[in-house]
Write a protein that binds this DNA or RNA. Sequence first.
DNA 1: CCCGTATCTGAACACGTGTGCATGATGACC
DNA 2: GGTCATCATGCACACGTGTTCAGATACGGG
Lengths: 331, 331
Amino acid sequence: MTGERRVTAMDVARGAGVSRSAVSRAFTPGSPLDAAKRSRILAVAQELGYRPNVLAAGLQGKGRSNLVAVVVGRLHNHFDSDFQAILMEGLARRGKWPLVVAGDPEMIEADILNVLGFPLDALIVRGGSVSAPVVDYCAKLGIPLVVSGRVMAAPRVDCVCGDNAGGAHLAVAALQARGRRRIAYLGGPPQLFSDQERRAGFQAAMAGAGLVPVAEDSADYSFEGGQAAALRLLARAPGLDGLFCGNDAMALGAIAALRDQGRRVPQDISVIGFDDISIAPWPGIDLSTLRNDAAATVAELLRLLETRLEDPSGPARVVRIPTRFIARNTH
Amino acid sequence: MTGERRVTAMDVARGAGVSRSAVSRAFTPGSPLDAAKRSRILAVAQELGYRPNVLAAGLQGKGRSNLVAVVVGRLHNHFDSDFQAILMEGLARRGKWPLVVAGDPEMIEADILNVLGFPLDALIVRGGSVSAPVVDYCAKLGIPLVVSGRVMAAPRVDCVCGDNAGGAHLAVAALQARGRRRIAYLGGPPQLFSDQERRAGFQAAMAGAGLVPVAEDSADYSFEGGQAAALRLLARAPGLDGLFCGNDAMALGAIAALRDQGRRVPQDISVIGFDDISIAPWPGIDLSTLRNDAAATVAELLRLLETRLEDPSGPARVVRIPTRFIARNTH
DNA sequence: CCCGTATCTGAACACGTGTGCATGATGACC
DNA sequence: GGTCATCATGCACACGTGTTCAGATACGGG
């Protein structure tokens, strides 16, 4: 055991017989320092296992901390997992350190406030709602706030979001092209922004096509939720011939339930999902769905972040990622 | 814009007409401070958007930083995603802040070294290998290192890992119980610890049952990799009647390819996966597999971490998470 | 040999916070 | 009223680093 205290620059200085300033300079590429002395210092540092404490360095006030808080809801959703993975890699590639805030919705609110205690370069929030106090704090602290999967109107808050309404229109159009007229919507939790936009888009598209939904229902974006909701829809509207689901997991659950009830998909009923998760194209699944492009979303998010860091006081921007219909074998 | 500088305790002190110490005490529950003054300070802090800088506070040397680095490989694997999600929540619940290190395997090595510049409470590494320099640095810095999905012998390095060999034995036993004798193994990348143990366990179990594998192959733990490998195996061993796969995604890919070739699963060929990912029980998938319990693994990992933080110089511990065979409809 | 210059180096400061210590005030008790 | 205890409060220090500034040193030219 080397003792409880962390190795400090002073220890290295003593070990190499130089001043602490020299140690600091040895780790700062531009600084003037005798080459021989530098290599000796680095050798001693290596020996002792010394690394400059980036927190103490960041305290200097100059430059950025490279610390970015990433708020994710619960990650038990396939699309959110993919999004998260791509975002982590993207941040790493840009030299940012992601500080992840996860957990129950009720805990997360307090945690967001707590994470603001770090000298963050930015706060990235995925999906779930951001409370007014958080937005307020960010504004006062001058911490850029970038929101994904949701659009909110606040000064200097940037948003990137899939085109939910457009996707819903594409889904209705695809169902209509198959001759479906008794169409239902199975949405996610109504308090979620994504569901609100998809539901509104669905209703608008139906109205535009001169159709009236035979039923609407909600579940929790899970497979099991989709199964149960499909049974409810079927009981309420036995003539159902088209179903637009708020995400892929629920669509797959619904298909399982419908087939279990003796309905053939897609012959008797068309089902369309949302997201195009990685398993959607697998044989035996082959789900017709709307592609929610996680990679493009992350790329735009990072671009927004970079622009915002460049010019913190610029106007708030909203970027919509286009949605594409992926025709497979369930509609 | 409130100016570029972060709001500091001194600003609040000026605003409330008190000393900076009082501000610090106002945010420290135990400290003696006049109740009226405390609430006045908190009000001013709220107004200005002040939060104590935890980095500067952590610089104090007392106590822990509550910062934990979590090294994950690429997260494009279902089991790893689940594991990651559970771990993030578990850490949050224990008041730890996860600093995620992700990215390409070649970038990650440098990133791990860089993240050691933070005053970490611990370093958690999932799966992939940990290079000797990293272990060395952690030892010298006195940073506890907890490894998951891999067992390594190093002083004061704790490991938690599924029982890969036991799982392989269960798989072979299940295949044997179905009367299968022409059995093949489809493993993951051979450089991965998980594959090495599962492969060795498979070979030992086969030998113990008096059987000789008809073929062995490897793929990249992906659905597509499983598809392609299944075709190779079929070409090499047309009489194949049992297949043990290194993970579920490959098993599902293999099943898709086998069915595409006219083989019935499970009537003609038994297929068993590994991990029991969340989609495995879904109707239409119904995969027989070995449960790799992510929740139990995370729970043990956190327990090891806590024990290690309690007594940093304790002996290295290795915990094995038992594996259970989940009999479904593909074997 | 002397002076100017370029370069290296160490001391000192700043960053923002928690806390030990001494001081002053206030209240209680005799 | 005096003395002591209690407690709130402000000052100063410490944490570990990057960087400025002035002093020192070496070197080259006249």
